[in-house]
Every structure is written in C-alpha cells, then in structure tokens.
Nucleic acid binder design. Structure first.
Lengths: 192, 192
DNA sequence: TAAATTTGTTGAATATACTAAACGCTAGGA
DNA sequence: TCCTAGCGTTTAGTATATTCAACAAATTTA
C-alpha cells in the first residue's frame, strides 16, 4: 500500500488529501465521521471528489482527526524515501551524552538543529501526536529499544539505530521494552 | 481604518480573513468577483459569515487574488505595531555597501539574515507582489528615495530611513523620484 | 461453511451555498 | 439640485452539499 501523495494527487485534490490523512491516522470513514459529527456518507463523497465540502464541514471533519485547516492545506507529504531509517547514518558517532550535532542528519541541508536527551521509561508512549508545522527531527537510540511510528511506517530501533523525518508527518514514540530507553534527538528549528 | 486581524477575528473567521485579504490587495467585492468568476453577492455573504463557502468556491475566489488555499489558512496577520518604519533603528550604521548584518533588524530574534544591494532606477516598480510564506524582510535606503507599501501602510523613505516587516504581508517597492535609489536589504531565511 | 460485523458506496430527501437581480447608500460631476 | 456611478447588502430561485437509510463486498467468528 503506497501512501505517497506526490503523483496521484494534485494540490487541490481535497479528496486524496483527506483520505491520506485519515489513513495515516488509522481511522475508518465511519470512525472519523463519528468523531467529527458528520455522516460517513459525506466523508465518502468528499474523498471521491464528488462534492466540494464547505469550510465548516471540512473543519468539523479535521477537528475529528485532529488537524487544523492550515496544516491540512500546507501539508506536503514527502516522498517516502525522504523518511528513512538506518544504522549506517552514524559512522562517526560516540555513544556519549555529549554528542556534536553533525553526527546525525548529515543529509539535512546545513540547517541549524537543536538537540536534547530523552529517557523513555518502559511503557512510555507519546500517544497520538500532533503535527508540528515545518521542521525536521532526528534521533539516535543510545540504550534500550524504541518503537517509532512515522506516517505509515513503523520500526523498532535498537542502540545505534537512528531516524530522520520531517516534523509535519504524524509521529509517535513508544518504549515497548523492559528497560529504560535513552534517546538523543535533534530538531529544527531549535525549540529547546 | 484598522486592518489588524488579531482580536476581531478568530482563526476560523473565514469572512474576516477574506475581507482583509481583499482589502489588502485593494479590490472591491465586485472586482474580486469578476476576476474569480463568482458573484459579488457570494463574496458579500461569505465575508459576513452568513454562509460557509465550499472549497471549490473559496479556491476560485482566492485564485482571483491570487492566493493559495494554504497561504490563506496559514496567513497570520501581524499586529500592525510589528510593522514599523523608523530612522532611529540605524544608530550605528555606516552608509557603505559593505554593512554588517547586525545593523538593521536588531529586534529580529537572532535569526539568520541574507543581505543584498538593490538599485531602483527612476520609475522602477515591483508591481503587485506575491506573498512570500514565512520570513522577514528589512532594508535601508542609502541614496535616492523609495516608496514602500506594506499591507495598508505606505511610506516614502529617504536616505537613512529603514523598514522592517514580515514577508507574508503583501509589499511593493517603487522609486517615484528622479534619481536612482540604492537600497540595502536583508531577508530571512536567506535566499541569496 | 454460514452468520455476523465492518468496510466503503449509493439514492432520495433535506439543508445549505450560490446566482441573478434588485435595493439603499455614498460620493462626484454637470 | 439632480444625475450617474460605484459600493456593499439583500431576497427569491437554483444548484449543490449533507443526511439518512439501505446496499454490496470484504473480513471475522463460530
């Protein structure tokens, strides 16, 4: 199942956008309709581009996700190969708390990055997450294991593994292991 | 005439957003309707929030501005006091082509700035301009005179005067004088 | 296998957006 | 002063979006 919006959906293809958002959040038409207070039929028709929803309807629906109108129209779903997991991104890394920024996200085009150290206790879960508008995120697992969900992709990362994605894709972090997980993460623009 | 969107219009007040955009671009309801291929009545009703336009209608209307849906919903009109003209922003400036960045936009919160030197011949005019999404712009007039229009405000600047505003507000530069105007301008994120 | 559940789709009825044409208002010009 | 032209608003009619309920296909459960 390919979830790229790139070719198949021009910017104005509201139906495809809505369908993709819904699928990324793992909702059925009926479930989204229930949350949004509209009928499943309406969502079906919108996704088929057989009607052009009113702003008020679209807003109600997006509130059920939830997602803002601005984000809905701004969202530009990266081709999936811009979301990548790898262990070989870290060739020069030393597994210490003090790590220089350049070690991860070499492919980020010279942007300034903020960095922080996170500890996830067993069972910790960021839950369904919001979209952060613009920016990029990356991180390295130092110890323990971390399950990372980015859009349609999910991976469990072990020490030495890394992730890198654009922050406007919905994402979620969980520690499904039995010991604490230490993660060094960075983001742009720097918020910390 | 105050054109701030801040208090009077919550983010979902489509009517106010549309009205403000229309006014900033100096269009009447009828003129915008003509360009967009809709009726002036429709625009009137939308601006009064008496109807919630369909996406297709709103898109048609915004195409008449022109403005993208993403920009329309993303736009956040700064309180007018963030748009300011002044001559006293430049206390430490030397009127030379090579000017260090810190001289202007001291109030910009430490963002990286690009800088360039522009020459406007008499009569030069950037014309109706597009909205650049995100970013800030500033500049100093070195010689000649320059008429700067930013949203609802217009000022003619003389050597030593400066401007500073967010790039997502429509803006226009004109040289209404008889001699060339030299301008040192900066913007973020750096595009040059 | 069959019954039950869940999925997305569809058709008829209703609610709402949009059009077309008028209205009242204000500002200039003869 | 009257006239004309432009502005935003309003009303009745038409086009369209949304609901409600039923449908077929796919998946689950027994």
């Amino acid at each position: 199942m390919s979830l790229a919006l790139q070719d198949e959906a021009p910017p104005e293809d509201i139906g495809a956008r809505l369908k993709l958002v819904r699928q990324i959040f793992g909702l059925t038409q009926r479930e989204l309709a229930r949350r949004a207070g509209v009928t499943n039929g309406a969502i079906s028709l919108i996704e088929q581009n057989r009607v052009s929803p009113s702003i008020s309807s679209l807003k109600k629906i997006l509130d059920g996700v939830p997602l803002s109108l601005a984000d809905f129209f701004t969202l530009n779903f990266a081709p999936t190969d811009e979301v990548f997991f790898s262990g070989d991104e870290l060739t020069e890394i030393a597994h210490q708390p003090e790590i220089s920024m350049r070690l991860v996200g070499r492919r980020a085009k010279g942007r300034a990055l903020g960095m922080l150290r996170e500890v996830y206790q067993p069972g910790a879960d960021t839950g369904d997450t919001m979209l952060r508008h613009e920016g990029e995120e990356c991180g390295i697992v130092v110890s323990g294991r971390l399950t990372v969900t980015v859009g349609p992709q999910e991976r469990t990362l072990f020490p030495g593994d890394a992730y890198y994605f654009r922050s406007d894709i919905p994402h979620r972090f969980r520690n499904a292991g039995t010991e604490p997980c230490v993660l060094i993460s960075a983001n742009t623009p720097p918020t910390f």
